[in-house]
Amino acid sequence: MTPDSDGLTVGQAAALVGLSVRTLHHWDTVGLVRLTERTRAGYRVYTPDDIARIHRVLVYRELGLPLAEIGLLLDDPTVDAREHLRRQRAQLTDRISHLQTMVHAVDRMLAVSRSDMRLTPQEQVEIFGTDWQPEWVQEAEDRWGDTKQWTQYVERTGALTPDDWRQVAADTEALNADLAAAHRAGVVPGSDEASALAERHRESFSRYFDCTHAMHACLARTFVSEPGYTSYYDSLSPGLTGWLYAMIFANTSAHGVDPESATWG
């Protein structure tokens, strides 16, 4: 049978709208889209209005609506279909904007992964010393991998060369030496000298991501609560971790942020 005034068979309609015959049979069974006419030979067929209803079902299905809700929308005479579609269009626009943001983030990650500038574990140990544990990077990713700060870290470090990393290591060593010397000299947290060191410490993290004073306070809490960090700083000068904690908290307070209630982000 050819498409004519007698309508379309299930097979013809399925080919026209890009659905399977099984799907159309199911929709017929549940009353979503029925074959409303018969040919002169007795075949059940879809009319042009039936095909138009199929297309409306497809639109609503693309919007994520369940079939039962689609049936109610199509059959309820009180539903303003155009207004409903306008609301759905607004939601789709928001979703598209969100997806575009995600695509841009993935593009940035791909660009970084193609740079081939990230250090091998051997290079990390060579540059940062034998105490460096390459798995620390994986641990950091497990903890912060879904944050925008981790995205910034990946972007910024991906562009660094081994020579850049050697400079980072030298800067870190100099900062640690100054922190240890100030601690041994009894520099008081909250003093000008201590605040300057606190800012240098915060800026050392800002090399990798935008480290606010609130985030710096969160890091300070981590230093004293997790043995790995405490061991690292105390190895520079016994008791340095607690002094660094107090120094960061004093500096955070001086910048108008309550370090006790500070949150990450």
Rank of each mutant, 00 (worst) to 15 (best):
P48D: 10
D50Q: 09
I51K: 02
H55D: 12
V57S: 01
R61Y: 01
L63Y: 12
A68V: 14
G71T: 08
G71D: 04
L72E: 15
L72Y: 07
D76P: 05
P77L: 04
D80I: 09
D80C: 07
Q88P: 01
A90D: 13
L92K: 01
R95T: 12
S97Y: 09
H98T: 11
H98S: 13
L99C: 10
M102L: 15
V103E: 13
V103H: 13
H104T: 14
A105Y: 03
A105L: 13
M109F: 07
A111K: 11
A111Y: 04
R114D: 15
V125C: 02
V125E: 04
V125H: 00
G129N: 04
P134G: 03
V137P: 01
V137I: 14
Q138W: 13
E139R: 15
E141A: 15
R143H: 13
K148L: 10
K148D: 14
K148M: 10
Q149K: 09
W150S: 03
T151Q: 13
Q152E: 15
Y153C: 08
E155N: 10
T157P: 00
L160C: 09
T161I: 03
P162L: 05
V168F: 04
T172G: 11
A174C: 04
L179S: 00
L179C: 06
A180W: 02
A181K: 12
A182S: 13
H183K: 01
G186C: 08
G190V: 00
S191I: 04
D192Q: 13
D192E: 15
E193S: 11
A194S: 15
A194W: 00
